[in-house]
Computed example of a mutant assay.
Amino acid sequence: MKKILLFIFLIFIIFSACEKDDFCIQNPITPKLIVRFYDASNRETLKEVNTFYVWAEGKDSIFSDISTDSLVIPLNGLATETIYNFSKNNVVNQFTVQYTPQEEYVSRSCGFKVIFNDLRFSSDNTWITDFTPETLTTIDQQNEAHVQIFH
């Protein structure tokens, strides 16, 4: 009887010493800024930007010589401002995004993600004629476009 109890006790100790595997099954990704480009004369029609280069201020090019009607770009979660340069046919337009980053705890296995609050957009409008919105409450997902740029 003592051997059975000892055996059961050892089995209990072995299984209780195992750690539960932690896998991140949620989507803890810090959202990126989604920009869509539209025709300035027909504001409902998407319009590609040709010979397009994108880089963050002080960084290397993110996109080089592409043609696209949408863009997914990261914001700096460690700063309160990200400045992007959008170059179309060698004409550079500076697009500034100001925000308040907020870390959000997801889970032990996933860690933290950053959401962006109180966003303000500005542009020096060289080849960009307009954009909407000028302010945005929060970016906490990346399911749809956040900013529409007209050119």
Rank of each mutant, 00 (worst) to 15 (best):
Q26P: 05
I73R: 02
I83G: 02
R36H: 12
A56R: 07
A56H: 02
N93D: 02
T135Q: 13
R120D: 04
T129G: 04
A40V: 13
T135S: 13
F7C: 12
M1R: 11
K47D: 03
F52Q: 01
F121T: 01
D140Q: 11
A79C: 04
D124H: 06
F95W: 08
T82M: 09
W127P: 00
F9K: 01
K47R: 14
K47E: 12
C18K: 09
D21G: 10
E48A: 14
P31V: 12
C110P: 02
D21Y: 15
R43I: 15
E48I: 10
Y38R: 01
D65W: 10
Y38P: 01
I139A: 04
L46R: 12
V147S: 04
T96I: 13
W55Q: 02
T129N: 06
E134N: 11
I25C: 14
F131L: 07
I115V: 14
H146V: 07
C18V: 09
Q102Y: 07
K88F: 01
E81S: 10
N93S: 02
L33N: 05
H151A: 14
G111S: 10
N117S: 10
V92E: 02
I66S: 01
P101I: 13
P133I: 08
L33T: 05
D140T: 10
F112P: 02
F23N: 14
V106P: 00
H146Y: 07
A145M: 10
S70F: 11
F52W: 05
F15T: 10
S16G: 09
F23I: 15
L10K: 06
Q148W: 05
K20Y: 13
L71Q: 03
V114Q: 03
T80C: 08
P31T: 13
F9Q: 03
P74N: 11
L78C: 04
L119Q: 01
N42E: 12
T80D: 08
R43K: 15
F7M: 11
F9L: 10
A40Q: 03
D140P: 03
T51G: 09
F121A: 02
S70D: 05
S70G: 04
D65S: 13
S64Q: 11
S107T: 06
D65R: 09
E104G: 08
F63W: 09
T137G: 13
R108Q: 11
D118W: 03
L5Y: 12
E103D: 05
N125M: 14
G58H: 06
F131N: 01
L119G: 02
S61F: 13
E134V: 11
P31W: 13
E144M: 11
N85I: 13
Q94G: 01
L33R: 03
T45V: 14
N93A: 00
S87V: 03
F95E: 00
Y53E: 04
